[in-house]
Amino acid sequence: MKILAFDTTSPQGSLALLEDNELLGEITLAGAKSPSFYLLKSIDFLLNLFSLAINEIEGYAVAAGPGSFTGIRVGLSSVKALALASGRPIAPISALKALAYKVISTEGSPVAVMMDAKKGEVFAAFFEGKNCEELREIVPEGAYKPQEFLNFLPNGKKIYLIGSGTKVYYQKIMNILGERAVLSRRSLFIAHEIGLLGWAVLKAGKGQDPDKVEPLYYRPSQAEEKWSSMKNQRKNL
């Protein structure tokens, strides 16, 4: 099965073309112009190198978030249209899971993923496992205060860490985990892992129709936050 995988949820954008779980080609772009500009251009470039047309893609794997809200929507709006046109299934994959898998498949387990979510928070999760079928979410995916998340991590074990948040909150990590922290040396490009995790989903016949695919924002918009805090204040009066 030819799978097109892409991730536009962070400044580290990437695309990958796979034949089942075999990587054929990959494009990685750090801090490129807006993903709406590079995504289709890169898809076209990658397909051309293999003399493939877009209608020969048999399944799509896409990073559904968390990350940049706009980036998430660029990826999902594009993949929904491609799936609507082709009738091919979509495997929406969590970017946190893909980052964890990147470490697990090469360096080791368990893995704490911390993505900088700005406003003093991280999108984070803690995973254990051996391969993509057996990736267990121990601390569930979500938006956390870094300190709160780090305190959820188990004692005594060596823990691998990956994600943009590990740079921003390096000192906090060291304070809490100390020598148990092992910072991953892998890059943050995840299209290959999105493709591999997507392949597992698609192979199992669990790919989704485009109208079922949901973004993983893990945070309400600022206006909604303000609104609910206003409502709570009123309740408290």
Partner: peptide, 19 residues
């Protein structure tokens, strides 16, 4: 609104590209 525009633009680009 750029975020709103991008949803339509990406959808339309992908359709035009596919066909």
């Amino acid at each position: 609104l750029i975020g709103s525009l991008l949803v339509g633009v990406c959808f339309a680009k992908a359709l035009a590209y596919y066909y």
